[in-house]
């Protein structure tokens, strides 16, 4: 008896968990390294050096919160934050709304659906630089939309958002929406296609109107799709830079400045790395502030329920 159990225990020794599935683990090592070194490491390094007085080259000359004090004292930074807030909130709401409406329209089994889908998705294939340039030309009062409409006879038509400091951010918003709505529309369309046909029938029999069905039945069912869309839109908002550079160069004056542009310009043109690091750390903070409540809602809630 003992010998049998001895031999069986030596044959069936529990495999070391570290080497279980080692090929998959090996394959994921590069990604883990990249994530740790580049993302986490780079971020930590930036935050640490934002407390130094680094100029063109990084130096370990500690200055405490000086960079941050200067940052929040700078008009250009305040304007950037304001612009990002306006652009961010408008972009988020409008992209979701327009994307969903377009998807709902396309979902109604219309003719030439794939042609429409292509047309709406096409701008997403363009880079932000091209988008910015194209919309700079369209919104140019002398050659663009304003001129065209005036040549049709409507002499007093004005549409010149890019040259007025108060409306330039909305000009950029138009370009951004044009570029990004297509992708959100496609995601929403995929989500809508996953809705059981019978739900529509049941709602029809119950006498619920189309709009009400969308709002009270369909959209709550599409929660994961909305979360995905939200994340995609948010990432596009934070990294807003090349669109501004191509479309307005930050102008007129400083009216269309955005945080990412502030970071790049102070890091390289002004050769003041410390300032740039402080600004990008603030950008990271804003993302974290939004992420934490969301993460709690998504993952914390599940533990309770």
């Amino acid at each position: 008896m003992t010998t049998a159990s001895d031999s069986s225990s030596s044959m069936t020794k529990r495999p070391n968990r570290l080497f279980k599935n080692w090929m998959a683990k090996l394959a994921s090592v590069p990604m883990i390294l990249t994530a740790l070194v580049v993302f986490v490491g780079g971020t930590a390094w930036t935050i640490v050096y934002s407390f130094t007085g680094s100029r063109m080259l990084p130096k370990t000359k500690w200055v405490g919160f000086d960079q941050y004090e200067r940052l929040w004292d700078t008009d250009r930074w305040i304007i950037s934050i304001k612009n990002l807030a306006i652009y961010g909130s408008c972009s988020m709401i409008l992209t979701l709304f327009l994307g969903f409406c377009l998807a709902a329209c396309l979902d109604r089994k219309i003719r030439y659906e794939s042609a429409f889908r292509t047309i709406f998705l096409y701008p997403f294939a363009l880079s932000f630089v091209v988008t910015g340039l194209v919309w700079q030309w369209i919104l140019n009062p002398d050659f663009g939309l304003q001129n065209v409409v005036r040549s049709w006879g409507w002499e007093s038509f004005t549409f010149n958002p890019l040259n007025d400091p108060n409306t330039v951010i909305y000009g950029i918003l138009i370009a951004g929406l044009w570029q990004g709505t297509g992708l959100i529309m496609c995601i929403m369309l995929a989500g809508l296609r996953g809705i059981d046909e019978d739900i529509w029938k049941a709602a029809k029999v119950d006498g619920i109107g189309t709009v009400k069905t969308y709002v009270m039945v369909i959209i709550p069912m599409m929660r994961p799709v909305f979360v995905t869309a939200l994340v995609l839109i948010a990432s596009g908002i934070i990294k807003l830079y090349d669109l501004v550079v191509a479309q307005t160069g930050g102008g007129p004056g400083l009216a269309s400045e955005v945080p990412a542009k502030y970071v790049i310009e102070y890091m390289f043109r002004a050769q003041n790395l410390g300032q740039g690091f402080a600004a990008s750390t603030m950008m990271l903070c804003s993302v974290v502030i939004i992420l934490i409540p969301w993460a709690y809602l998504e993952f914390g809630g599940k533990k309770r329920g």
Binding site: D75, G253, R269, A270
Partner: peptide, 19 residues
């Protein structure tokens, strides 16, 4: 003047001239 100060003065000028 250093590039940093130059940039800040340019920012001020940009604000002044367009507003």
């Amino acid at each position: 003047l250093s590039a940093d100060t130059q940039t800040q003065i340019e920012d001020l000028m940009a604000q002044f001239w367009s507003g």
